[in-house]
C-alpha cells in the first residue's frame, strides 16, 4: 500500500479529513482567497462568453488559484496533518 493511501485511510477513518477540510475552507475564506478565485472564474466566464464548463474553468484557474494560497495556510495545515498522524501512530 502506498503512503498516500495509508494517510488517506487514516484521516478518513477518524473523521479528521472532514475537520481538516473545514479548517482549510475557513482559512481560505478568511484570507480572501475565495473572493480572488471567484473573480478569476468570473473573468474567465466573461472572456469565453459563457461558452465554458466547470472542468474547463477548473483546468484554467487551478494553477493560479494554487499560487494564491498563502504560505501560512499551507504551513498550518501541514502542521495539523503531522500532529494528527503522530497522535494516531502513538494510539496504535
Amino acid at each position: 500500500m502506498t503512503l498516500t493511501k495509508v494517510v488517506d485511510q487514516a484521516s478518513i477513518l477518524q473523521g479528521d479529513r472532514s475537520k481538516l477540510k473545514d479548517l482549510l475552507r475557513l482559512r481560505l475564506t478568511e484570507c480572501g482567497w475565495n473572493v480572488e478565485v471567484r473573480l478569476l472564474c468570473r473573468e474567465l466566464v466573461k472572456e469565453e462568453g459563457g461558452n465554458i464548463n466547470v472542468d474547463k474553468i477548473v483546468q484554467t484557474v487551478t494553477p493560479k488559484a494554487r499560487n494564491l494560497v498563502p504560505d501560512s495556510v499551507k504551513k498550518e495545515l501541514l502542521q495539523k496533518i503531522k500532529n494528527i498522524l503522530q497522535e494516531q501512530m502513538t494510539d496504535i
Binding site: 498516500t4 493511501k5 488517506d8 485511510q9 487514516a10 477513518l13 477518524q14 473523521g15 472532514s18
Partner: peptide, 25 residues
C-alpha cells in the same frame, strides 16, 4: 461523500477506492 456515521467512515476508508487503479483520490 460525507460519511454520516462511524460505520460509513470505515466503509469509505476501506472500500472507496478506484476500481481501475486502486487509488484513493
Amino acid at each position: 461523500s460525507v460519511s454520516t456515521t462511524t460505520d460509513a467512515r470505515r466503509r469509505k476508508a476501506l472500500s472507496c477506492l478506484c476500481y481501475t487503479c486502486g487509488g484513493s483520490g
